[in-house]
Design a protein around this nucleic acid. Structure first.
Lengths: 198, 198
DNA sequence: CAAATTCTGAACCGATCAGTCCAAAACGGA
DNA sequence: TCCGTTTTGGACTGATCGGTTCAGAATTTG
């Protein structure tokens, strides 16, 4: 062959993802991406074609890993359904508290992108819709299991409860970006579990 | 004096607000603002100083009117606390369904701005925090009243429930932007009321 | 070592960005 | 009517945007 890459593509993608996550799509310049990844413009355009393509891959990477770990928690049959939901919410609270920039939560790339781009870019919209469907399906499954086992008392249908859970999680993300601290997020999470268990 | 304005400042502000609401701050160009308001660049800069200042005034205008009507609903003592919350959620669902662009909900300027700018611009951050405090205070008041009257069964403290309610509302907004239809939003709202009443 | 191939850095591109400037137009007051 | 003041539209500015180009450095293969 010929001259080999001097960088790790996966690492570069991760750095780019983080930048989009912190600053949003429009506010991230190609210059920002160069600095974050440590690559030159040529290398970036050589490898990722365009800013939009790099964003799409970043978003894909984000949902794969994030939704992946969430689904894994939800499908872990070694603990009862309600407990799995508690673990999920803990995970989210921890994430919001840990992932900050300038002392502020950076939220969730999925939520941020839904707000910034959903409905404006067809590829982004499709990707977000697929991810939402995947998360809702996992939510529904645990909730149904919880209802069958008497773990979850609410008699609303599992789909409605899944949409409710999804909305609360999104709202927690926005709250964190709005300045909510750990105690606040935990209170929201606890109230949400009340709603399902009670 | 001299030559009078050819336009209505309040109307222009409203058009600008709507544009920022639909497209976000960064994605709205000064050209967009000219087209939306019908004003020339000179008139805009003459009247509103800068894009950022115009945005700040737009956000202020939004918050005043939106939070204003919400607080009015919450303080209407002619109906019981839980009923006021139901009315509030109905209002929000209606708003999300009605306010669309390209068949997609445009969400809530407060939520959108929290995601896009909170923590990045100090003036924006302060404005959003003031508005959040105002809404939380109104939420707390109705919830406390509901708890005293036995209308609201949850024994969590009113502040936690207020933060919870705020999060769900934000999440409904994001869900709407993500494509949720009226039935879905209503299901989330109903589940939320369950959580407070049950 | 030499040829073939790929990667890299920097200069460069047209478009668009927010914002400025200015001359002409449009009015009120005298 | 004419002066003073303000508004208005359009041309303009420097900076930055995403993206391209290209010469030369780096590396594998023969």
């Amino acid at each position: 062959m010929a001259r080999p890459r001097e960088f790790d593509e996966a690492r570069a993608l991760d750095a780019a993802m983080r930048t989009f996550w912190e600053k949003g799509y429009e506010s991230t310049s190609t210059q920002d991406l160069c600095e974050a990844t440590g690559l030159g413009r040529s290398s970036i355009y050589n490898t990722f074609t365009s800013k939009r393509d790099l964003f799409l891959r970043s978003l894909e990477h984000y949902v794969d890993t994030m939704t992946g770990t969430q689904v894994a928690v939800l499908e872990d049959e070694s603990s009862p359904p309600l407990e799995r939901l508690r673990t999920l919410l803990d995970l989210i609270v921890d994430g919001e508290i840990e992932n900050r920039s300038d002392g502020r939560a950076i939220g969730c790339l999925t939520v941020n992108t839904t707000v910034e781009l959903s409905g404006r870019d067809p590829d982004v919209t499709r990707l977000l819709e697929r991810d939402l469907a995947r998360r809702l399906a996992a939510f529904r499954a645990v909730i149904s299991a919880g209802q069958r086992g008497g773990d979850i008392a609410s008699e609303r249908d599992a789909d409605a409860l899944a949409r409710f859970l999804n909305a609360v999680i999104g709202g927690m993300r926005v709250s964190a970006q709005g300045g909510a601290d750990r105690a606040t997020l935990e209170a929201i999470a606890a109230t949400t579990l009340d709603a399902l268990a009670a």
